[in-house]
Design a binder for these strands. Structure first.
Lengths: 146, 146
DNA sequence: CCGATGTCAGATCCACTGAAATGA
DNA sequence: CTCATTTCAGTGTATCTGACATCG
């Protein structure tokens, strides 16, 4: 009595949406143990990969509303994971920089993410997992720039 | 300045979550043109695939909260896409049945879903799309029963 | 026990404020 | 140089969704 309707299982759209939601929820649960949410991790990752950003640029990169980003950064700054500094040449801007503690936190979160991933993708062989990743990556890159 | 952090792109968890969200949003937009949302489609599909359900069983099958299902069925019943009838043997139960109009609607929604899917998966060859579908299906089936 | 109503928390979106830069 | 306009961080809020709690 609990099987999913085949009509839906036939749709890749449905499977993507559903497994995506599962992945999201499981990761969010893990991050909650660190008192963080998905956006916190995304911000830390962006700063680690691309260096300090003005808040506006960070919001544009991550596709988050800048008013919401303010609150995410409030949290991270309160825990000394990022640092806010006024831009000296344009005093409207605030540079956001990753702290060493933030870098450590990010590494922990990545470990959590890999645990979730290993668990979720357990039914696939490593080769299949890599295949899935490659396919998803291509879909993502094309969907992000239509 | 708008590239996604590689730290995130390395995580299948992230790609699943992100592309899943994209798929969901695009389909939801399409369904909104019919004044319907994703749960409406899921309910129609379940009724088409498995026949009439009591509301409680339908909620269990779809993994939706029964209080939310009530309102979804309210909408569908108001548009004559499903019909509510009291169970004669257990008068607490309400049987929900698909109407011919509901079946037609479902077919329309499936068409919409395939359009979204063709668009989203356009960067992949048909063989790759089938591969992605098969992999996602296995992940979904295992994730649904942990 | 089952369907139905009400409510609450989280996320996203949108409008706005005040300070600071830009340019006519 | 002045004033209007634009840009930026930050605040407040409306809306929508999903989870829960309770009622009949």
């Amino acid at each position: 009595m609990d099987a999913t309707p085949p009509t839906l299982l036939d749709l890749s759209t449905y499977l993507l949406s559903k497994t995506g939601k599962t992945a999201r929820e499981r990761l969010a649960t893990r991050l909650a143990a660190h008192d963080l949410r998905l956006w916190h991790m995304a911000v830390l990752a962006a700063l680690a990969d691309f260096g300090p950003h003005a808040q506006r640029d960070l919001a544009a990169r991550l596709g988050i509303d800048s008013s919401d980003l303010v609150r995410v950064i409030d949290d991270l700054a309160a825990a000394d994971r990022v640092e806010r500094t006024r831009d000296t040449t344009d005093r409207r801007r605030v540079q956001v920089t990753l702290t060493p503690a933030g870098r450590t936190t990010l590494a922990d979160l990545q470990t959590e993410a890999r645990i979730v991933q290993a668990d979720l993708l357990a039914p696939l062989t490593p080769a299949e997992q890599a295949q899935l990743h490659a396919l998803l990556l291509r879909v993502h890159l094309s969907a992000d720039r239509p």
